[in-house]
Design a protein around this nucleic acid. Structure first.
Lengths: 149, 149
DNA sequence: CTAATCGTAATAATCAGAGTTACAAATTAG
DNA sequence: CTAATTTGTAACTCTGATTATTACGATTAG
């Protein structure tokens, strides 16, 4: 199934932005993320509406992060993307007349709701700041790694 | 996103089979599930390989449940369907060279793995027998409901 | 003014599940 | 044995969603 990778994509962009320190154009972001500038604008647009980033037009314009990195959680980003469907598995019909299907749906819905709640809870505890520091750590380890070739 | 409804579909069929007591043809199952007999065979085929149902060809053939209803869990059914992708959200690239993307993937993978583990745990605790009894309860309530029209 | 840059609509490409058709294989009934 | 029923399965289309691309308008710095 085709999965929604916008959260992964936008995180990638935001961390590059954070690493850079200043602002980046859609074109720069798209190149370092391996996608298209229009896709970048589309995704970042949701974050701008949520007040997480700002954009400026014209020469020397581009995208900047508007908040302290430690105050932005994955959950906020998920919400800024419009809270896309989390599960690739779902009920055949959401309003079945068949009583058998009602029982099936009730059981599945319960389990999915619980798993989604856990995921959102986890997302609420991970901040951009944490990810940025994790990247810095990986970067340091990469630079000092033993040469194997 | 288009969601995989095979688990929901197959549960529906199995509970009708359980309610019937005997065997049903793909055609009968497809009609009471609102789908196509070939789709039924395709989905039930996986369950047959897992030993959960049996099929017989020819006249008076069809599908039967091969196990005690209380020994079949949603998790077993999920596995019999080939453990389809659970999440509609995923990483942009699973093998990124970019260290930023590695940090992003690690954080997301952790959260998703935890949520999936919870879901599988829940699925492991729900049996066909429980769902069948839940249906019987709904059916009784339906028959004795106050007439509102 | 001109070039750079975002904003956005419209459209195509891509992908996986679901639906359908067609036919072979197996089995029962007579 | 023959005919009818039913599963098994390949091949193809349909559908719906994300992603990619094209095109062009709006804004702004220099």
């Amino acid at each position: 199934m085709k999965r929604d990778s916008r959260l992964s994509t936008v995180l990638h962009g935001l961390l590059h932005l954070a690493d850079r320190g200043g602002s980046m154009t859609s074109d720069e972001l798209s190149r370092c993320m391996g996608t298209n500038p229009v896709v970048v604008r589309r995704i970042m647009g949701g974050l701008r509406e949520a007040g997480l980033v700002t954009s400026t037009r014209g020469p020397s314009g581009g995208w900047s992060i508007a908040r302290d990195l430690d105050t932005v959680t994955l959950r906020q980003l998920h919400e800024a993307l419009g809270e896309p469907t989390v599960f690739a598995i779902g009920n055949r019909s959401e309003n079945p007349g068949c009583l058998v299907e009602q029982s099936v749906n009730a059981a599945l819905d319960d389990a999915f709701a619980e798993a989604e709640a856990l995921l959102m809870d986890r997302f609420g505890k991970v901040t951009l700041g944490q990810l940025s520091r994790d990247f810095t750590r990986r970067h340091a380890a990469y630079k000092t790694r033993p040469q194997t070739g």
